[in-house]
């Protein structure tokens, strides 16, 4: 990293997510009424509108859904880098980056198994990134 990324400013509705990444957990929400699992965070279920929802720690397992490899400069990245969409084992999709992996079409194969890793940016914000799943990990 040669510069800083634009960092999120949590809101009351998302604070639990960012507290989670700082604590090494990828926190999702599940509806207590219809069991729908969703992201990004909000204090109600987007499937059935119930306000009865619970936060839980996701497995951190995911697969590579789609991506682009950006060739234009970004102050926080060196060289070409992938912006990825990952589908979590629990269902929701999120944007992230793939680390510990060459940023090439040959290395970044759609549907490859991934696992979350956490990268602190400062005292309050830690970003969830993903890396190729370790051999033998359950994905």
């Amino acid at each position: 990293m040669s510069g800083s990324r634009p960092l999120p400013e949590p809101t009351p509705e998302t604070q639990h997510f960012w507290d989670g990444t700082r604590a090494g957990e990828l926190r999702l929400q599940r509806c207590d009424d219809c069991a729908h699992v969703y992201f990004p965070p909000r204090p109600f279920c987007p499937a059935c509108a119930s306000r009865s929802v619970s936060v839980f720690a996701a497995s951190g397992r995911a697969r590579l859904d789609s991506y682009v490899i950006n060739h234009r400069p970004h102050p926080a990245f060196e060289g070409h880098y992938a912006i990825a969409l990952v589908e979590l084992e629990e269902g929701p999709r999120m944007m992230s980056n793939i680390v510990s992996c060459e940023q090439t079409p040959e290395a970044l194969v759609l549907d490859m198994p991934l696992e979350v890793t956490f990268e602190p940016q400062n005292d309050s914000i830690t970003l969830p990134l993903f890396r190729p799943a370790a051999e033998g990990s359950k994905t």
Binding site: R5, L7, P8, W18, N70, H74, Y81, M95, N97, L127
Partner: peptide
């Protein structure tokens, strides 16, 4: 939502 969950990952 974009600022929290997309902008940190290098979208330009």
């Amino acid at each position: 939502l974009q600022g929290q969950f997309e902008a940190p990952f290098g979208v330009v």
